[in-house]
Design a protein around this nucleic acid. Structure first.
Lengths: 212, 212
DNA sequence: TGCGCCATCGCATATTCATGCGACGCCACC
DNA sequence: GGTGGCGTCGCATGAATATGCGATGGCGCA
């Protein structure tokens, strides 16, 4: 990309905390194979700044004022498709994780990780990996496991499964009742049992938990 | 669990190749914090052997004769719920990866990784992580990045995808609005656009049409 | 013969969702 | 310098869903 420079990784920092920015910049500059390619306090300045100072990788914080990090990821991705996006945040809520990954994050690290992990993660992501902190990786993997595998698999009765299948197909309560030649109230009743067994409170959740 | 023993990790090996078994066992025995808790050539002998020789973690190969590794994972999981299951294989086909993860694998490493990566992965998985080889992690993360890319996909905007993702997770309108820091009416507005593009009339249908 | 589980059905209420019919600001593109 | 897409927001109404608190009958099992 920039033949005049050696092959140091150009890393940009997007974080609303000045302290964090400084700490990470110092960390990057101490690494022999990296260089700090810009520090930004938010998505907007990053979008404009990165145009003239391209980076191989951007460390993106979530939960920033004005534009949320997750929201900014698609923007960064569309403007700079060759820049890897690595989320670096304090939070490990499911919402944060999956929203970030769905929005194009190439990795998800926690600020509580040791500094070496951050440097390793940066090298990992530019070499085609997707670094995640242990807790994050576990959560991500678990999303694949919820289909089957549950040891205490709440066994649904055949009738309940049939109803769930019809509802999954978008038939709605009325359509399901008609298909099975039962009353809507019966469908309601089964749904109630299903919710109790699965410990959920909406059809969406029930379908998510019973997805084969 | 076994107070008479020191806190060495008891690692079992399930692989149909004798060479691989020997190589890994030597590697484990050379590690100060691990011990080989059994070597098995297939799922069936592992199921019986692990009863009398419990392990903290089992390295499971895929594509074994008689019982496939992926098929064996739920069996191992149900019999030994406290034993972590780490897939160690040569293959990185999508089918292998996602079937293994869906069937309860706690991590997925490639035999082509350096030996140190295997040891690090073992330590990672017992400490609550989910180690994945770089290429595997990237594939896993990518599944979150394309909630849909079906053939006749009426392209949804990043915002619309984010909203669908949250709703799929069971957040509901209010939760989604809160997560994205927007109003419920805005969520409604996006949903309306999504329904038009997908030509559906319920969330269930929209989610069904946007899953690959 | 009583007990538990399943399937059926009813009614009432609160919450959520679907939809229509608007509006505004921003930005890219021509 | 208009046009269109995107994202934001509001209000209103009817439909659908969630939940509580019931009931009846059949069936297997101890």
């Amino acid at each position: 990309m920039t033949p005049t420079q050696p092959c140091r990784l150009r890393v940009a920092i997007i974080d609303d905390s000045a302290d964090v920015r400084t700490a990470i910049r110092n960390l990057l500059n101490a690494a022999p194979d990296m260089t700090c390619a810009g520090v930004y306090a938010g998505i907007v300045p990053a979008l404009s700044g990165l145009i003239n100072a391209p980076a191989d990788l951007a460390l993106v914080d979530l939960r920033m004022p004005e534009i949320d990090g997750s929201t900014g990821l698609p923007m960064l991705r569309s403007l700079f498709p060759d820049t890897q996006l690595l989320v670096l945040t304090m939070f490990q809520e499911d919402d944060d994780i999956f929203r970030a990954l769905a929005n194009g994050a190439n990795g998800y690290l926690l600020k509580s990780d040791p500094p070496e992990s951050l440097l390793a993660g940066i090298r990992d992501v530019v070499s085609g990996g997707a670094p995640m902190s242990p807790a994050i990786a576990r959560r991500v993997v678990q999303t694949f496991q919820r289909p089957l595998q549950s040891p205490d698999n709440p066994v649904l009765t055949p009738r309940e499964l049939a109803i769930l299948t019809l509802l999954r197909a978008g038939r709605g309560y009325k359509g399901t009742a008609a298909d099975l030649s039962i009353s809507v109230d019966t469908v309601r009743s089964h749904i109630r049992s299903i919710y109790q067994k699965l410990r959920v409170h909406s059809l969406i959740e029930a379908l998510a938990k019973t997805r084969p």
